[in-house]
Design a protein around this nucleic acid. Structure first.
Lengths: 219, 219
DNA sequence: AATTCTTGTTAGGTGCTCCTAACTTTATAT
DNA sequence: ATATAAAGTTAGGAGCACCTAACAAGAATT
């Protein structure tokens, strides 16, 4: 489990790598407001821990693990900001500083509960995407089936989970990528979704399942 | 501002001192699960910082400052627990561990907002008192006027604030300690309270004022 | 190509919170 | 009163995240 400091480095690295995947020590040091020797030392540690690749005098790159972990921190940050504004009624100006602290709390349950109370947002109010709990940024065009509206017809594009049981479940239901799905009804109470597809009519999918099906609307 | 570790020491000291105001290093070490030399060193620092009084080989005592600071941490812990159960829907078993982390967040606004959303609780669900934001434990028999019910008659016992303006305000309203107050009505919307006392009838007190008046019920 | 500027590195140090091993002081028990 | 047990102390060390000063490597400039 990354330390609080490591999480901050990962977050900074993530933001910098969006502009340029090759990150310099100096750049990173400026963003984090620490000296170059400090960054240097820290990056060597993070390299040992597998978050970044680093060779002396060469730019830093995030590993896949590092990228995923960074996304998780960003997820926690954005969820926290949403929670502070939507549920606790703070103004957007005030929340950043508090979210910087909350994002480091060690409790998946806590962030899952936030996610749920916020109704699984995929974007924060600035329009920035919120990664899922595995640290994947959803493709901007994909939305969760559970977030769609009654009457819409959508195409299944991707899955948000790839567990064996989940795949077998989809198999049994004859749900596969590319499938056209029509949303008949969304139950407000438990957010289960009733859908029709192929020769199946009015199949009920739980919220848990619907949230793992990434779809896009057909025009 | 005390460090996270110092806050934990203060909290442990507070709980231990309730049984016995003279606390031994060994006891404290056991509670915090750290070695005796560690406690020893840490307590010396805390003594320099004014949280405890300590003389070699003698038991540790909390200073007034230390006690107040400890109460503040306990307040944050209990508010967090309440928030996690009441607002976020966690079960009582799960919340302790998360609250242990939340209690260290540096943001008064955050805890004030929790307090507000929870409607200014004075006790947690176990019946343990929640100190106020200045770190005062309310006397168990005293309750805030704002927490009473319509129709009750109460006696004003103490004030939760002693600001000049507040005292002048009470003066103007002819409210003083020992006064008998009858609660006529509590407005659900803004929690203002309409009361009668002495020759004053149906005086409206804002929630902010009512929360600062500590009363006990007359039998 | 040589100089200069920028970037990265080493060396040596600090404060915080923790440790074990060995010792001393104080309290308890015979 | 002395021996033993319990509590407290000192010395020396470790890892984390930070620092400054001084030096080396690589890039940019003329």
């Amino acid at each position: 489990m990354p330390s609080q400091t490591t999480e901050n480095y990962l977050k900074a690295l993530y933001h910098l790598h969006l502009k340029n995947p090759e990150i310099s020590l100096t750049e990173l040091g400026q963003r984090l407001e620490v000296s170059k020797p400090t960054v240097n030392e820290m990056i060597k540690k993070m390299e040992k821990q597998g978050w970044v690749t680093y060779v002396r005098y060469k730019p830093i790159t995030l590993t896949e693990d590092g990228e995923r972990e960074a996304a998780k921190v960003i997820r926690k940050h954005r969820l926290s900001e949403m929670f502070l504004t939507e549920i606790m009624g703070f103004g957007w100006e005030e929340v950043h500083q508090i979210a910087e602290q909350i994002e480091h709390l060690k409790s998946d349950a806590f962030f899952d509960r936030m996610d749920e109370l916020l109704d699984f947002p995929t974007k924060d109010p600035h329009g920035s995407p919120i990664p899922d709990r595995e640290g994947n940024f959803l493709d901007n065009n994909y939305q969760m089936l559970s977030q769609m509206e009654e009457g819409q017809t959508v195409v299944l594009n991707a899955l948000r989970s790839s567990g064996k049981e989940f795949l077998m479940f989809l198999n049994k239901k004859e749900i596969s990528l590319g499938l056209e799905i029509t949303i008949n009804q969304i139950e407000a109470f438990d957010r289960s979704v009733t859908v029709s597809y192929g020769k199946h009519k009015n199949v009920v999918l739980s919220q848990a399942v619907a949230a793992k099906l990434l779809v896009s609307q057909t025009e």
